[in-house]
Write a protein that binds this DNA or RNA. Structure first.
Length: 897
RNA sequence: AGGCACGUAGCUCAGGGGGAGAGCGCUACCCUGACACGGUAGAAGUCGCGAGUUCAAAUCUCGCCGUGCCUACCA
């Protein structure tokens, strides 16, 4: 047994651990800030520190790793920048849950202590997902790992904030924002998830102050009426108007509120009268501004009714809704209640119903930033792939609204703004000022809010590279080559990176944005913990091995379509890994003493099979390269799968087996392994395996490294090997065409064997008749191959001749194939076979006949198409003739027997 | 409400104007010295429906039906 032999079964766990440790130790993931090589860079979409590796991460990072390994092998200076995101609300929630278990809460702890606890948590658990990414094989430059709350990144955040403020692009103001009463913080519009909800539409009568009757308004949220400041109707609404249309009395509160006229009101909806609650509805707020209405807050930060809500004070907002309805009903002011479906906003973190809420917040004025980001995509400075997302991107960018960036939580970048308690001056600065520049007072209070987590993520491509300093990293690797991400964060993240990158770096953050699909369960449902349909990537890795998992993800990563993942599919690709392993095992058995130098580098006697497999390999190199360049991962993966299994294993290895085992007589009469053909074949086998491994490495890094290590004539890690390139010398149409004839004949014979129920162990005689002399010579030259692959005891190659007795027939191209079945032939079975085949051909010929009798087709179709159809028709007709002839004979014999 | 995708073999999906493809599953035979996580052979589809463009449509255009997703301020 040689050192080079592989174990019988592939053991992913041990191999993966060993090689990953080796790669890290050898520094093979490291990027160089200064290098002659062309740069290629990717910044990782930073997972939340609270995150545990899920399918989305696995998919996303597998694709990135494929690109990085591919480019590294192509000789690029690759930087894959890793890191994690501090995930403000998510992390705060996790830490708060921990406190709750201890019977504490963040308020009892105090801000400073709480933040300390959060850091502790991150030190302890924050590295988990990084370790999980390593198990996936991710080749990030881990020495550069960053965290959004690092000192450097925090400096970048403050710098950006101060500059945008100075440029008038950040402002503070009182507006309606989305408030989560559970998280007790504001949220941006994007952080609100809308869901249809079966609610009610309540019709409430507001009596006129003077005169009889009143006006009926419709609302889905009756509890907000307590804060109503007016009732609005459309000025064009002819139904409404008159002397009493001035003031109504707000029921339950007995407050006088005006009737106002505003075109915003839709006359067709409800009663055409709209109650206006400026403090609890964004449109009402706008209308309130137009009409100088006083906003009255009736709900507090916890979602409870406040002191302005009269007797409902202290009630929960939903409880209050029921009581208000009841009270109105008692007073006879509830006209009617209709079931009504409408969309309700929920917090994306905790799913609590969002409260539109008037409060003082910080905003980014995004329009000027968005314009540049639109131009960058329009001009192609950044490409979005697949292109269908470009439209979505424009749509959103063109309708973008100001971004609320302040959050009332404690974990995050605290807003660098101070208020002078003496004179009220607002100071925005990098560091805490010593005195107020306006009054020189020293009582300065820092803003308590922190920034939206996405604010720091928006700077990720340049903040991770050392901005606002100007290090070499930034010069070498910005703009990054490509961003790989899911569409779910196209707006949250990609769009904002575009805006910030362009504004501060004067250059797009990435050349390409590759948007991949979502991983779903086998039924196509989104994987979620609550549904219980999640497949844990770590379980998959343990069960099937990382390589099988990665290959599955790549194979299913068709552009624009979601991935429906099931264990069964991963299992299928584990079989592929196993196949590769065993093909390599077989090859290594015969290559253990191989030395590349002894090889037939300049061997002249490549066999047809040698030329064919090298030509096919060349084709795969071309496909894989092209596909990866265009982010068509699935096309690259399936080309490799097809090649390895159905060309290399099914045909090439089977063809060369007798030669390798020394059981075949060579043309020079020797069976010695020193014969030139043996040497050449070993060289071709070695080359094919060697290059196939390199092609496969970006997809399945572990198993390829393990085999590479055992393959003679390779040095160092496969990571450092060159990615194969195409070679015109290997492109061999002639060999491919010749092989088509040979494999066609072999398949023809096998087909007869299979269909006629010939025992696989039985050796049979066969004859091939062809009118083509060149073809006969080809068959003669490769008779050993045919005999061997078809388990024949004899093979006769002749010009068209008499039909051998007791034989079954098949036709391929010019060749009529006979398999002698003396004594075992079932004539009826053979008749059935032939009839079926003839019927199939007849159907096809009908279609061709129709085409060829169509004058328009003959006239207007390109000449080569017409010629092709004609040739095909002739071929088929000839084939049918030969089959019919044989059918006639067989029928006679069947009748005789 | 608007937008975007997708309806191809039992299942999951490639393909994308001139010959219907793959994997899994299924059927039959086979443990042949890399591999039963394997081999050989086989069955299986009106390419959602209807029009249009074209000599030619699964493929392009329009409409319809169905499914999914995203965005939206009609109370």
């Amino acid at each position: 047994m040689s050192l080079h032999l592989l174990e019988k079964g592939y053991e992913p766990k041990e191999v993966e651990r060993r090689w990953y440790a080796y790669w890290e130790k050898e520094g093979l993931f490291a990027a160089e800030d200064v290098s002659d090589k062309e740069p290629f860079s990717i910044v990782i979409p930073p997972p939340n520190v609270t995150g545990v590796l899920h399918m989305g991460h696995a998919h996303n990072n597998t694709l990135q790793d494929i690109l990085c390994r591919y480019r590294r092998m192509q000789g690029y200076n690759v930087l894959w920048m890793p890191g994690t995101d501090h995930a403000g609300i998510a992390t705060q929630n996790v830490v708060e849950k921990g406190l709750a278990r201890e019977g504490k809460n963040r308020h009892s702890l105090g801000r400073e202590e709480f933040v300390k606890r959060a850091w502790q948590w991150r030190e302890e658990y924050g590295g988990l997902i990084i370790e999980q990414l390593k198990r996936l094989g991710a080749s990030c430059d881990w020495d550069r790992e960053r965290f959004t709350m690092d000192e450097g990144l925090s400096k970048a955040v403050r710098t950006v904030f101060v500059k945008l403020y100075e440029q008038g692009l950040i402002y503070r103001g009182d507006y309606i924002i989305n408030w989560c009463p559970r998280c007790r913080t504001a949220l941006s519009d994007l952080e609100v998830e809308h869901e249809d909800h079966n609610g009610h539409l309540y019709y409430i009568r507001y009596p006129f102050e003077k005169g009889k009757g009143g006006i009926v308004v419709a609302t889905t949220r009756p509890e907000t009426m307590l804060g109503d400041a007016a009732v609005a109707v459309n000025p064009n609404d002819k139904r409404y108007g008159g002397p009493e249309w001035k003031t109504v009395i707000l029921p339950l509160m007995n407050r006088r509120i005006p009737i106002i006229f505003d075109e915003y009101v839709d006359m067709r909806f409800g009663t055409g009268a709209l109650k206006i609650t400026p403090a609890h509805d964004p449109h009402d707020f706008e209308i309130g501004l137009r009409h100088n209405l006083e906003p009255i807050k009736v709900i507090d930060e916890d979602g409870r009714m406040n002191e302005q809500a009269g007797r409902f004070q202290g009630k929960d907002r939903f409880e209050c809704r029921e009581e208000v309805v009841e009270a109105l009903s008692e007073e006879g002011l509830l006209e009617k209640v209709e079931p009504y479906q409408h969309s309700v906003g929920h917090c994306y973190r905790c799913k609590t119903t969002i409260e539109p809420y008037l409060s003082r917040q910080w905003f980014v004025k995004v329009k000027p930033l968005a314009e540049k980001a639109v131009v960058a995509v329009k001009t192609g400075a950044t490409r979005i792939i697949p292109d269908t997302w470009t439209k979505t991107y424009f749509e959103w960018m063109n309708n973008i609204k100001d971004w609320c960036i302040s959050r009332q939580i404690w974990w995050g970048h605290r807003i660098p703004a101070w208020t002078c308690e003496n004179c009220g001056e607002l100071i925005v600065a990098m560091e805490r000022p010593t005195v107020c520049p306006a009054c020189e007072g020293s009582a300065l209070v820092q803003e308590t809010d922190v920034l939206d987590t996405w604010f720091s993520s928006a700077l990720w491509p340049f903040s991770t590279m050392g901005w606002p300093d100007d290090p070499q990293t930034l010069k070498t690797f910005y703009p990054t080559s490509v961003l790989v991400t899911g569409f779910d964060i196209l707006f949250f993240w990609v769009a904002r990176m575009m805006m910030m990158g362009l504004h501060f770096m004067k250059e797009v953050p990435f050349r390409d944005v590759y948007i991949h699909a979502l991983v779903r369960d086998a039924e196509g449902k989104k994987m979620s913990k609550s549904t219980g349909n999640v497949i844990d990537p770590l379980y998959v890795i343990d069960e099937f091995g990382t390589d099988a998992f990665r290959f599955t993800l790549a194979a299913f990563a068709a552009q624009g379509r979601d991935i429906k993942l099931s264990e069964k599919r991963i299992q299928g690709y584990r079989h592929f890994i196993n196949k590769l392993w065993n093909a390599s095992r077989f090859s290594l058995m015969h290559l253990s003493d191989f030395e590349p130098d002894e090889s037939g580098q300049d061997a002249q006697d490549f066999s047809l099979a040698d030329r064919w497999i090298l030509s096919r390999l060349n084709g795969v190199v071309e496909t894989v390269t092209k596909s990866l360049d265009e982010y068509r991962f699935n096309e690259a993966a399936s080309a490799l799968y097809q090649f390895v299994w159905h060309e290399l294993c099914d045909w090439y290895l089977e063809i060369i087996k007798p030669l390798l085992y020394g059981t075949v007589t060579l043309s020079d009469g020797t069976t010695k392994m020193s014969s030139p053909r043996y040497v050449t074949t070993r060289f071709v086998l070695w080359s094919a395996l060697n290059e196939t491994l390199r092609l496969l490495h970006p997809f399945i890094p572990f198993v390829t490294e393990e085999i590479w290590d055992k393959l003679p004539g390779t040095e160092g890690s496969i990571m450092k090997a060159e990615f194969p390139t195409t070679s015109d010398a290997r492109d061999d149409r002639e060999a491919e065409e010749a092989m088509e004839v040979l494999t066609g004949v072999v398949s023809g014979i096998r087909n007869i064997r299979g269909e006629m129920n010939v025992m696989p162990s039985l050796f049979v005689g066969a004859a091939v008749q062809s009118p083509d002399k060149g073809e006969r010579e080809l068959l003669e030259r490769h008779r050993d191959m045919i005999v061997n692959l078809c388990r024949l005891k004899s093979l006769q190659v002749t010009p068209p001749d008499k039909r051998p007795a007791s034989s079954a027939t098949s036709v391929f191209g010019n060749c009529t194939i006979f398999v002698s079945l003396k004594g075992v032939i079932d004539f009826e079975l053979e008749q059935g076979r032939l009839n079926k085949e003839i019927a199939k051909i007849t159907k096809e010929l009908d279609g061709i006949g129709k085409k060829l009798s169509n004058k328009d087709f003959l006239q207007k179709a390109p000449q080569e198409v017409v010629e092709k159809v004609r040739e095909k028709g002739e071929g088929l007709a000839e084939k049918r003739n030969r089959l019919e002839e044989n059918l006639g004979k067989v029928s006679q014999l069947a009748g005789n027997s």
